[in-house]
Design a protein around this nucleic acid. Structure first.
Length: 926
DNA sequence: CTGCTAGCATA
DNA sequence: GTATGCTAGCAGA
């Protein structure tokens, strides 16, 4: 592999970091902003550009040759602010401790040192990557030297330089000579800016040639040019970066002198302690830092609420880095513009992609425009289907997609987006298969802060301190809402290009929080991102529904409901709306004077199932209502609704899996929800009969057996429970045997039922009160069972206590794989809320680990299907169950392999077991 | 038309 | 007692 030398223009970042970050200070009131910014930047760099050889170059004190040849060199530059001066020493110390050789050469500017090193590196057969915020260094770029700007993710190779400046790298010196450099106080030609410089260079090629032809250039600028003919050669020398400096006094040889040393952990701990970078510190001293050290990186600020409040605002969102970036948004209306953007994104390290469409329904929405951003602040919007009075001519949807297809479908062109699963559908609707999804800001936020909101507007506000243009501002709301295709293109560009720009910035802001944390990184890279790709496929596969069967059921249900309705009217002595809890309450509790069993949170008498069940013991009407309710639920939610959700094009039902809503890591299914299709009652199960396989295929369902209890056994390490699972016995029976102190063979069905309720209660963080309610026994009796349980399963008790402690101490609990589940209310002064959070804390590791496991299963199964080119397809996920549609000739294969894959995704202290069922429909497959 | 409550389907 | 999403009714626009 090609060796790479990674060079950082430390000086160029000093000022930028200092000015971009707010005034941060440690307890001793020492300024820390620039220090924080530089450390953060170097860490990110090491991750994004792994290189064996490194150097961070700073300007040294003292005059340089430029000062000697030009008295006013940098004359306009103010002296370094005192707060920055104070940070220089710690910055150098930190850079060194992080394992970066530092180069400071007296009498030679950092630029010249870098220039010289790149030339030497190339001479040694290496490539060089130069990280700088200074565009002047573009002159160093060639086939082996690339420029990157970590502040805005910009990457400049030869093509990039041409795209950005309009001239190739070897003409950058000429270009800068003509324009001048106000920062260094080097004048160029008055009134000549980038446009004119590019024009002249296109015509005459070099500054020397421009000078030679000065007499032929007309206009005021021609006159200005002739005024400075004598100066230009000197300006050219000033802006030229030297590549032949003598560095022999500072290094033995290239590249050995620049081999990255190990990071100096002790010094880093000292520095991070002194400057109060707690999160980095925690990572250095905490567990899991082996992986981190191996990458030569520590841990970045996580800005969680705990950290923030605890340290009074040190480690701010690095977002502020971007708030000052100048914005340049372009509407792409011509083929030439599109070509230029294609060139840019083709060479980009990462491109933010966003689509604008006619609706939010992923399977039917039509593409209206595409926005792109591969450099912070610079984005494009490509409208392809805006249609309103006098809309300008646009490139057609088909044309743009064909031009972009190669890039969109290229797995090696890295893309980021906000919920790219949606955009993937939009592209798929047009026959384009989006590949190369390496990041998704929705998932980054979800993995980083499970409990917070993940919509782009909130994220921008939180991480970038930026208020985005909202969809509502652009399209209005309610009846007067217009489609995005009716939005004026200029306005659409402001909105859409900003979305892509913000997406890229959000990634840059959130990624450091994940990349340095081995566990979060695993969850993100190995679970969430691949899961989103799999989900998109499952959603697209869809489920075949026997609509006529459901219609028949709807009819029957309707008839029976009418009969029941009549009975209810007779019993009530008047007609009323059975679906209205309010009217029902009046009938039951006012007219018929039935006793109020419990009240709703709002104070009215409850009429829920539990209440009606109780009242049904003594009165006829409640029973009738229970029947009505169950039928009505089935009809309205399922048998009426599902046929309406069949996609006209595919003839199937396509749910949408929400990947970032459930705080435990579970998926949620909506439009329609396929995760709550009835199963408990015979009546309800008939709906599953309508979930069918097409001719020649069958439905295969595989579900994890007792997954959450197994996870509890694993996490708690409780010996009794582990043994029960290891022996493969009936877990509820085993539990009953322990609690009631009888041999397993003598456990009664009543005892087993109790044990089962207790087992479930445990998973939910049960209290004696809750258990009593559920079993219909006294609270004291319930308490006794719980105590008995904890005596026999002491490991479980210990796990629960420890989980509560951990949750309170750090504000979150973790799954087995390290997913963080935040519990904002765990220390709430409100007892009710706090106890709620405690129960959630108990439940979350189990529910969350189960979610991790089945996501890993989905990835494994999809991978298998694609590798072996099977025709079987996943069509649903229901928390612990995967449902596939399998052609007959693949049945035996799937039947064996599917549960193996599911059981094999992780090695826990208990065996994982997946049970398979097969049938013509989903009901039979269970 | 929007947002809320009550109730109920699933794991 | 955990985690979700959807429906109907109803109140206030």
């Amino acid at each position: 592999m090609q060796k790479t030398l990674l060079l950082v223009d430390g000086s160029s970042y000093l000022y930028r970091a200092f000015h971009a970050l707010p005034d941060m200070r440690n307890a001793a009131n020492e300024p820390t902003g620039a220090l924080y910014g530089i450390i953060n930047m170097l860490r990110r760099l090491r991750i994004d550009y792994p290189a064996a050889y490194l150097a961070c170059v700073f300007d040294a004190k003292g005059k340089t040759f430029r000062d000697d040849m030009y008295a006013d060199y940098k004359a306009t530059r103010a002296s370094m602010p005192e707060d920055l001066v104070k940070q220089i020493t710690p910055i150098h110390a930190a850079v060194r401790a992080m394992g970066w050789p530092i180069l400071m050469v007296e009498g030679v500017e950092a630029d010249d040192v870098i220039g010289t090193l790149t030339v030497q590196a190339v001479a040694h057969g290496m490539d060089a990557v130069v990280s700088t915020g200074d565009k002047d260094l573009a002159q160093l770029v060639n086939d082996h030297v690339t420029l990157i700007n970590t502040m805005n993710n910009e990457k400049l190779d030869r093509a990039g330089v041409i795209a950005k400046f309009g001239v190739p790298p070897e003409r950058i010196v000429d270009y800068l000579t003509l324009i001048g450099d106000t920062v260094d106080n080097i004048p160029g030609v008055a009134k000549v800016g980038p446009k004119t410089a590019v024009k002249w260079l296109a015509q005459y090629d070099t500054v020397d040639a421009v000078i030679a032809n000065a007499a032929n250039i007309g206009g005021a600028v021609g006159e200005n040019l002739r005024q400075v003919l004598d100066w230009l050669p000197k300006a050219k020398e000033l802006v030229t970066v030297k590549t032949d400096c003598d560095l022999s006094a500072h290094m033995v040889s290239i590249p050995e002198s620049l081999k990255a040393p190990e990071q100096d952990k002790d010094t880093l701990i000292e520095l991070f302690t002194r400057y109060n970078f707690k999160t980095w510190l925690r990572e250095l001293s905490g567990p899991g830092d082996t992986a981190v050290v191996a990458e030569g990186a520590g841990k970045t600020a996580d800005n969680d609420s705990v950290a923030k409040s605890a340290q009074g605002g040190a480690e701010p969102a690095q977002s502020s880095l971007f708030s000052k970036v100048e914005r340049h948004y372009e509407t792409v209306l011509t083929e030439a513009q599109l070509d230029q953007w294609l060139k840019r994104i083709d060479g980009a390290t990462l491109t933010a992609v966003d689509t604008e469409t006619t609706s939010l329904e992923p399977m039917t929405a039509q593409l209206v425009g595409i926005s792109l951003c591969c450099e912070v602040g610079t984005a494009a919007y490509i409208p392809v289907a805006h249609r309103y009075q006098d809309a300008p001519a646009q490139l057609s949807r088909e044309f743009v997609l064909e031009k972009m297809r190669a890039w969109l479908e290229d797995d090696s062109k890295p893309k980021v987006g906000q919920n790219l699963k949606y955009d993937s559908h939009i592209f798929a609707n047009q026959g384009v298969n989006l590949r190369g999804i390496v990041h998704d800001t929705l998932l980054e936020s979800y993995v980083f802060e499970s409990h917070r909101s993940h919509d782009m507007d909130s994220l921008a506000l939180r991480h970038l301190n930026h208020q985005t243009i909202t969809f509502q501002e652009v399209c209005g709301k309610g009846a007067s809402q217009i489609g995005f295709d009716e939005v004026e293109i200029g306005r659409a560009t402001e909105y859409a290009a900003e979305d892509a720009d913000i997406t890229l910035q959000l990634h840059l802001a959130m990624w450091p929080h994940i990349v340095d944390d081995a566990k979060l990184r695993f969850i993100y890279e190995e679970i969430e991102v691949p899961t989103s790709v799999v989900l998109q496929k499952i959603e697209r596969n869809g489920v075949l529904i026997d609509a006529s069967r459901l219609a028949t059921q709807s009819n029957e249900l309707g008839k029976r409901m009418l009969e029941i309705e009549q009975q209810a009217y007779d019993l009530a002595g008047q007609p009323f709306n059975l679906s209205s809890p309010k009217q029902l309450g009046e009938i039951l509790f006012e007219k018929l004077k039935l006793p109020v069993v419990k009240k709703t949170p709002s104070g009215s008498p409850s009429t829920d199932e539990e209440v009606l069940q109780k009242l049904a013991e003594d009165y006829p009407l409640p029973k009738v209502l229970l029947d009505y309710r169950s039928l009505s639920k089935l009809k309205s939610t399922y048998t009426d609704k599902l046929p309406k959700m069949v996609n006209q094009n595919t003839g199937r039902v396509h749910t949408n899996y929400a990947q970032a809503v459930a705080v435990t890591g579970r998926l949620a299914s909506n439009d329609p929800n396929l995760q709550n299709i009835p199963i408990r009652t015979a009546e309800g199960r008939r709906i599953r009969e309508a979930f069918v396989a097409p001719e020649g295929s069958v439905i295969v369902s595989a579900d994890y057996s007792q997954i959450e209890l197994r996870i509890m056994a694993h996490i708690s390490g409780d010996e009794n429970m582990l043994r029960a699972f290891a022996e493969g016995v009936d877990i509820h029976r085993a539990t009953a045997a322990e609690i009631f102190g009888t041999p397993a063979a003598e456990v009664t069905s009543e005892q087993r039922r109790y044990a089962k309720v207790i087992n479930f209660g445990l998973i939910y963080g049960m209290s004696a009160f809750g258990l009593a309610g559920n079993l219909g026994i006294e609270r004291a009796a319930a308490q006794m069972y719980i105590e008995k349980y904890f005596m026999r399963f002491a490991g479980v008790k210990q796990f629960m206590d420890e989980t509560r402690v951990q949750a309170k101490a750090q504000g979150y609990v973790e799954t087995v794989f390290g997913r963080r589940l935040w519990l904002p209310e765990i220390n709430s002064p409100n007892g009710q809320r706090r106890q709620g959070a405690e129960r959630a804390a108990i439940n979350a590791p189990m529910q969350g680990t189960a979610a991790d496991l089945i996501k890993l299963s989905m990835i494994a199964v999809q991978n298998w299907i694609e590798t072996d080119r099977l025709k079987s397809k996943m069509i649903m996920q229901v928390h612990d169950e995967l449902v596939l549609e399998v052609p007959q000739d693949e049945l035996e294969l799937v039947r064996v392999k599917l549960p193996q894959l599911m059981a094999g995704v992780a090695e826990l202290r208990v065996p994982l077991i997946a049970e398979v069922g097969v049938g013509k429909n989903w009901d039979e497959a269970h």
